[in-house]
Design a protein around this nucleic acid. Structure first.
Lengths: 215, 215
DNA sequence: GGAAAAATTATACACTTGCATAATTACTCG
DNA sequence: CGAGTAATTATGCAAGTGTATAATTTTTCC
């Protein structure tokens, strides 16, 4: 009677892959990489499990694709706002800190994904490479912004000093990102970005608040 | 012939539980909570899997016990050094920052454990309670140290300001802890603690370096 | 409209998982 | 030293895992 074969619609490879990747990210965030089972992912994407093997040669490959998708999204969300500002270096630094500490970058799901992927990232060479590239890019970019802003203010810094400033500022941003994502209700909207700008200002001796008010 | 039954030695409940918990933490750090299988844990503890059920009524219970063991160890390692100092509040603050940013607190395994447990912590009420208690304790302690040190320096701060300072300092420490554990080879010994003290000093306006040199 | 091709579903398999229970062994205490 | 008891091992089981492959349906194209 009801044991009819399931109806389906054909989709483009691009759309199906995207849907599977998004379903994978949801489940990885919720249950970790091992908890994101092939059957669960298929169900979330409203598809039967065999289809996954049609688009990805293994679960491993799907996981890697999902990780790269996520990292690209995070990078875009962080860098786009700062790149859009074409004023002073100080203005770009301010925009960068703000973007790093407001949604959608600050988000419980991002933290969950970060945590879930960590194990795999440290073991799989390809994922490790993606991670390190992204991290280095982030920190170098921040260091560049700080260097330019200091020069602009007439107080250029030596490379060693610059490295320390970048590490420290990166740490505040990371720490606030972590706290904001782990305890979403503990902070008022904009509070994290406020504290972030103040802290970067205190560490570098630059005045980011003045910049923030210009908006 | 060789299918003799395995020889064994009886141990105290305390010792066996401890051994099982340590094996669990190892495997959770390496492979995540789901990757830490009952069989794997038993093998790591040099025991057969049935014994786990004899000491813990389920895997879940073992995981929770392991998490609490780890959190207690982390807390002890962080707070003991600061509690040992009975000089000025500034000295205690400095000791606290140092302890938070040197081994064994800074350690790749700690990061891996933190990440591996995150999912479960957000889902299991008991683990969530443990986590929030530990986190609040940490931040309140830091806020208290900052408040005392500021008062000592003749510049007491209002509660709202104090809260922001504690959040910011906590974030730097967390961020540096994270970077140090995720990229162990990227920092020279003591470098993280140096940067941590400088950053906390910059944010609060206190002079932690002078304190550090007294050692 | 019908055949060819590709997307999708359905089924099967070997392996792992957590848990339960029976069989044995090491230690304790008289 | 010998019986009793609790610790430990051994075995089994049902459910879930990733993967492989066969069966079917949708779309395309002449």
């Amino acid at each position: 009677m009801t044991d009819e074969r399931r109806k389906f619609k054909r989709e483009s490879a691009k759309a199906r892959k995207e849907a599977l990747i998004l379903a994978t990210l949801e489940l990885v965030a919720e249950n970790g990489v091992r908890g994101a089972t092939v059957r669960g992912i298929a169900q979330r994407a409203d598809v039967t499990q065999g289809l996954i093997r049609h688009y990805f040669s293994s679960k491993e490959e799907l996981i890697i694709a999902a990780y790269e998708h996520h990292m690209t999204a995070m990078t875009d969300q962080t860098f786009a706002p700062a790149a859009g500002v074409d004023g002073t270096a100080l203005a770009r630094l301010t925009a960068f800190v703000n973007a790093s500490l407001t949604p959608p970058v600050v988000d419980p799901r991002s933290i969950a994904l970060w945590a879930s992927f960590l194990n795999k990232v440290q073991q799989d060479p390809q994922m490790k490479a993606t991670h390190e590239r992204t991290y280095a890019y982030f920190r170098d970019f921040l260091e560049g912004l700080i260097a330019a802003a200091l020069e602009e203010a007439g107080r250029p810094a030596a490379p060693a000093r610059l490295r320390q400033l970048a590490i420290a500022c990166n740490a505040v941003i990371d720490g606030l990102w972590l706290e904001g994502g782990a305890l979403p209700d503990a902070f008022a909207p904009g509070e994290l970005a406020d504290i972030g700008r103040q802290s970067v200002a205190a560490i570098t001796g630059l005045n980011l608040e003045q910049e923030a008010e210009k908006t």
